[in-house]
Design a protein around this nucleic acid. Structure first.
Lengths: 208, 208
DNA sequence: AAAAACTGGTACCTTTTGTTACAGCTGAAA
DNA sequence: TTTCAGCTGTAACAAAAGGTACCAGTTTTT
């Protein structure tokens, strides 16, 4: 099935006019792994919807990072979605984790769709709601939980989303997800191992 | 001017049908200070829009709190807005700071408006975008800044929003906004005073 | 006016988190 | 095979933040 048809099906887009508009102005693009999709402080000109692959979205401050979320197939980054309503610079970075196919839609064209097409309205609304709740959850987690709890949460969430108890991350990668340093992660993982919570291998953490 | 007309004007609601619907199902209510508008884990049945007064929205965990945002006149709480699209329990608390007049709209009725009325679509979209960016800013702040910086940020933001260099909060109230304890705030404010950044009085912090 | 509750100041200690420094290990490239 | 960069482990130390305790004003309630 073509990328467009995948998109139509996943978002329940039935309006022929909308389909035509998307096909007309949409650009299918396959991006190699570890490529930037958006960069902090740069203007967002395209709304990108991930068809296959995965995109990591995070914030930076000096040498620290903190994960915001991953964009999975048939999702879009909320922040580029806001950009479709209001020209603005990105306050985040987004980079492909693996080879990723996206459909790019020019921001200016998309703006009107949310009122014109019911399916698009639903898509944007749900994206906003889901993303807001997700961020809220992260905020609460960050505000009230110590790092070890946050690490454990992260591992469990990762396992759940990927349906695998094996998390293929190095200590320093994990540190960047959580917003701390490698040494702290090493210490915590070691404690987890001693408590029998995990098995540690190189670039691999196995939940027990 | 009636509360409804204030609302129509502020949100640029021109559709007569929408005005009629709002007037028909909306309830104007004046709530005394320090009253709960929504409570954690309870279902949201009304979308509340603040007409005058102020509502504080926060999250709790054991004896700690952290401020999410204030809802000011002609704003609505995003979270109750999401509830209009999807029945859900509140994950936050909201309480009036002062006597507050709100217009309550039953969640079930509002759902369809965002596609039916352009002005309502704009209102919801802008609420989502604004709130998301606001939360994102708080998240970054929490992730990367130490408490003293966050306190200073809070004071400056407060001063800016209220157009007054005088912040009428006790140390323990401020602690609850930031998500820490009274002693920590006392220590930090004392340092600020010694550095000549603020003047301290009882229940009053003056930015210099 | 007396009592109670709230507010602020401070000292001391603990826990949590971060930093520095170094050593051993692993896997891929030359 | 050697080499080297990246990964992991760990110890010692430093800084940030939180907890406890107690005291002294101030405001509110009784």
């Amino acid at each position: 099935m073509s990328e467009f048809n995948l998109l139509f099906k996943a978002l329940n887009i039935v309006e022929e006019d909308l389909k035509a508009e998307i096909i007309q102005c949409g650009v299918v693009q396959t991006v190699p792994k570890h490529s930037y999709i958006v960069e902090q402080d740069k203007y967002i000109k395209w709304l990108a919807i991930v068809i296959s692959g995965k995109v990591r979205v995070w914030q930076e401050n000096e040498d620290r990072q903190i994960l915001l979320y991953y964009v999975n197939p048939i999702e879009t980054c909320v922040l580029s979605l806001s950009a479709t309503f209001r020209d603005c610079k990105s306050v985040v970075n987004a980079k492909t984790v693996e080879e990723t196919t996206i459909i790019k839609l020019p921001v200016r064209v998309v703006t009107a769709w949310s009122f014109k097409y019911k399916s698009w309205n639903k898509f944007t609304t749900e994206s906003f709601i889901f993303s807001y709740e997700d961020l809220l959850h992260s905020y609460k987690n960050l505000a009230f939980n110590k790092i070890d709890k946050r690490v454990l949460d992260y591992l469990h969430t990762y396992a759940k989303k990927n349906k695998s108890l094996s998390i293929p991350l190095s200590h320093s990668q994990l540190a960047k997800e959580i917003g701390t340093t490698r040494e702290v992660i090493s210490k915590i993982l070691k404690q987890f191992e001693l408590s029998g919570l995990v098995n540690l291998k190189i670039k691999q953490i196995e939940l027990l």
